[in-house]
Structure formats: C-alpha cells, structure tokens
C-alpha cells in the first residue's frame, strides 16, 4: 500500500511501530466516533461533580477530585465547537496524560459515551483528510480509520490540548 506523504510524525511513528495493529479507545461525541491511542489513556471515570473555575476558557468545565488530585476537565464538545448537551448516565470522563514539553499533565475529557477498545491495523489508518482552506482545524487528527462501515477519527491528544491551547488559556485570562 502506498503511503501518502504526511507531515504527521506521530502517524509515521504509528506506522513504524513493531506490531501490525494498535489499540485505540473509541468514544462517541455528537454521533461521531473518535479514538484515542490507549497508551495516553489513564482511566475512565463516570461523570462526577465538577467545580467550575473562574476566568478560564469555556471548554474547561472545571476541576475534579481524582483520589486526592485536583485535575481540570475539558468539555470536548465545546472544544470541537459542538453544541452543549446535558450530562446523561453515559457521560464519562476519560483521564488522559498529555505531554507538554518535559511535563506530563493529567486532564479529564468529557465525552458523550465510551465505546470500546479496538485493535486498528496500521494499514487501515489513512492520513487526516484535508478540507482545503476551510475553517476546520485538522491538526489534532492523527488519522482516520474505517471500521465496520464507521469512520473513526483518531485524535492526537497532545495536539488537542497542545501547549498552544494552554497558553491560549492564560491569554484569555489576561
């Protein structure tokens, strides 16, 4: 299979990996299916009381107490510009670890529903689509995989919550 030239080095790493398939945690957001590399996922918890924090961007819903640690949680819907919905019984927080420089930060992501852990063969992963000069930012998409007639957007979590976005957080405050 011919490999498209891609600037996403993570994808290149992904393809260069030893195994022929990688594990992804898939979850639903606004009827779309997304996937996160399982290695960046620390745990999944039910939605819990979230304490709002003043002066932060609206995609940060607040902070939670995860066994004595205080972590911020990101409303992924808001982050992706989707409409807000009420939390349901299926709403979950995926706790991820992201790399920001030398630091490893821990954050929660609020998603509509967690589906399953899927093995996705490298060969099934396509590079991220380009929408030309449209307004849709695809920089945080690692690749796209097609599974049983469903398209799964694989996220590069470090880019979703990249340092740039975090500084944006502080800029907004000032």
């Amino acid at each position: 299979m011919s490999i498209h030239d891609t600037s996403t080095s993570s994808l290149a790493q992904l393809r260069a990996g030893r195994g022929s398939a990688d594990k992804f945690l898939t979850f639903a957001l606004h009827d779309e299916v997304y996937g996160l590399p399982i290695l960046s996922v620390q745990e999944i918890i039910r939605i819990m009381d979230i304490t709002p924090v003043p002066h932060v961007p609206d995609f940060i819903r607040g902070v939670i107490n995860l066994r004595g640690k205080v972590l911020p949680v990101v409303e992924l819907r808001t982050k992706f510009g989707m409409e807000k919905i009420e939390d349901s019984k299926r709403t979950c927080i995926i706790v991820v670890q992201i790399q920001a420089g030398a630091d490893t930060l821990t954050m929660g992501l609020i998603v509509d529903e967690v589906n399953e852990v899927q093995n996705i063969a490298k060969d099934n992963i396509e590079p991220p689509p380009s929408f030309g000069s449209s307004t849709i930012d695809t920089s945080f998409i690692l690749g796209v995989a097609k599974l049983q007639k469903r398209v799964v957007m694989l996220l590069d979590i470090n880019k979703v919550l990249s340092e740039q976005h975090l500084t944006e957080v502080s800029e907004q405050i000032q």
Binding site: P54, I64, K69, V70, P72, L166
Partner: peptide, 25 residues
C-alpha cells in the same frame, strides 16, 4: 492542594481543597 499544572495561574484563586464530601473547593 495545588491545581494541576495544566491550568495556568488563575487570578483570585490560590489553590484548591477537597471537602469532607470529596468535592473540590
């Protein structure tokens, strides 16, 4: 409790604490 470093310093907020009920204040 310090808030995880992923949030920048928030003016007017010095940190957090966990209440008896397990909520963050």
């Amino acid at each position: 409790k310090p808030i995880d470093r992923s949030l920048p310093d928030i003016p007017g907020i010095g940190g957090s604490s966990i209440t008896g009920e397990g909520h963050v204040c």
